[in-house]
Amino acid sequence: MEMTPDDTIVFVLAGFAINATILFTWIVMAILTIVSVLITRNLRPEVPPNRWRTTLEAIVLTIQGQIDEISARPDRRLLYFTGTLFLFIVTSNLLMIIPGWHSPTGSLSTTAALALAVLVAVPLFGISSRGIGGYLHSYLEPNVIMLPFNIISEFSRGISLAIRLYGNVMSGAVIGAILLGVAPFFFPVVMDLLGLLTGVIQAYIFAILATVYISSTTAPPDTQPESTTAKEQT
């Protein structure tokens, strides 16, 4: 039994081995892009919105609303980043309902890449918001003794993000595969349904935590989001 789709080489392109993780990532990217293009191609103010456009607007506005609740400085760039995180993860997880689907989020490489993106985005958003001096000064708070702990905390965030998402998605897939061998008719269906719920929740948690991390660096020191601690405990 393969524990990660990284090991499955689908084809070789220009000397690069394209594994299942990258292939299914491209499929998710294609689905998201094509659906977006199809829905938004006739988007004009005088054209009344149809049900698909309304659904897409509701999704985008819900993400924006979540960001507005968390962040002291709502920014569209934050929507682009965390919204894409959420949509990519939730689409990857929901497509697990399709037989033979290897979710890219079931690969530690993918979750590590997403965590790495968050890890890089946090200082970038912080520097663009508060300046490089203001951002680096945040590592010395509340005093200089806390500098190593703050650095460790910063990296542990990325690691915890990556491991949490990978563990949940991979464990769901592994448990489903085991139950399929033990009781092939009833439990796999229940576990798949549970996996869908878990996938949506994990996508939500990953995106929210990324938003909280980024917001904590963009907000002024006296307006740290109160929900940071609660979200991290989730």
């Binding site: 993780t21 990532t25 607007e57 682009y80 919204g83 995180l85 990519f88 590590a112």
Partner: peptide, 25 residues
């Protein structure tokens, strides 16, 4: 794969920004 996924993610951010967020917003 991590590097490829980072690139894929950034491309996806750009694609969704171009075809989803910006038109919708």
């Amino acid at each position: 794969t991590v590097a490829a996924q980072v690139v894929n993610f950034l491309v996806l951010v750009w694609l969704l920004k171009r075809f989803l967020y910006r038109p919708i917003l």
